[in-house]
Design a protein around this nucleic acid. Sequence first.
DNA 1: GCTGGAGTGTTATAGCGTAACATTTTAGCC
DNA 2: GGCTAAAATGTTACGCTATAACACTCCAGC
Lengths: 154, 154
Amino acid sequence: MNPLCPPPLPHDTEAALVRAEAHCTTRGTRLTPLRRAILALILARQGVVKAYDLLADLQAQRGKADPPTVYRALAFLVAQGLIHRVETLNAYVVCCQLGHTHASVLLLCERCQSIAELSAEAELNGLFAAAQGCAFQPRRQEVLLTGLCQACAA
Amino acid sequence: MNPLCPPPLPHDTEAALVRAEAHCTTRGTRLTPLRRAILALILARQGVVKAYDLLADLQAQRGKADPPTVYRALAFLVAQGLIHRVETLNAYVVCCQLGHTHASVLLLCERCQSIAELSAEAELNGLFAAAQGCAFQPRRQEVLLTGLCQACAA
DNA sequence: GCTGGAGTGTTATAGCGTAACATTTTAGCC
DNA sequence: GGCTAAAATGTTACGCTATAACACTCCAGC
């Protein structure tokens, strides 16, 4: 049982898109061609992606595109739990566990900038409990650990 | 033992400045007049502060000021552990526990935007351990819980 | 007094994100 | 099929956030 998330590189883009489509259908939302295209671009970049990079990609594909187009699609994908926003980087990563709303912990390598996703339900629940102990009602979390990935630490 | 951090409002600005000064002296760094002034402005605003608000304050005080002036001071204060940067908000808050490098967990109320700071060493250590279990070497963390503060939940 | 480094001033610009409104597309209904 | 309301997208313009690059000042230590 490896809690680390994805096979970091060889995303199977097609399969991921099919899964995303099913995920949206289940939720009664629509993965429109535009949204699907942008998700595909994110998957194609395999890692952390910036909005304006996607904008450039989209412009390359279609000749013209403006920021709101990208940002709206990103907002939708985040809302569906298909991608995560990484605040520290002003960037986005694909979620590796769509379908089951999970507590995400992101691991960012400060050397190679790679991102992995950790499943740490128990630890996060501890954190939530601690907050509740202070009469704070947590609803969602943003947890980013910065450090060295296995490869870079070697 | 209340893990929640500060008396939320009545910061004793003078005392905090004195403490900050001592903190810097200990570390061999200099809380220059400019840095001190900006820290004072942050303290005066009692809560989460945006860089350009500080810029406006500084301009009001001194007639002229430019972004790098503020950002350099903020970078210094963050480096000294005197304030925290809140990525999600592109904003800054005073640290309530200067002097002992602590693992900060921020609690942001999504209704009134107030920020509190939680001491949850044990839970964070659990998180670090989980990351290390995946051969990731964490160095620092950014943990933000969003939800409802005691007042707003009532 | 010279020098090097830290701190600050100044100008310009890059990067990130959204408001507001127009237009098109879609789904549901008669 | 045609109608309507809501959702989605296109388009324009702009505001906020942040940093690069270079000049200048100040001060400690020799």
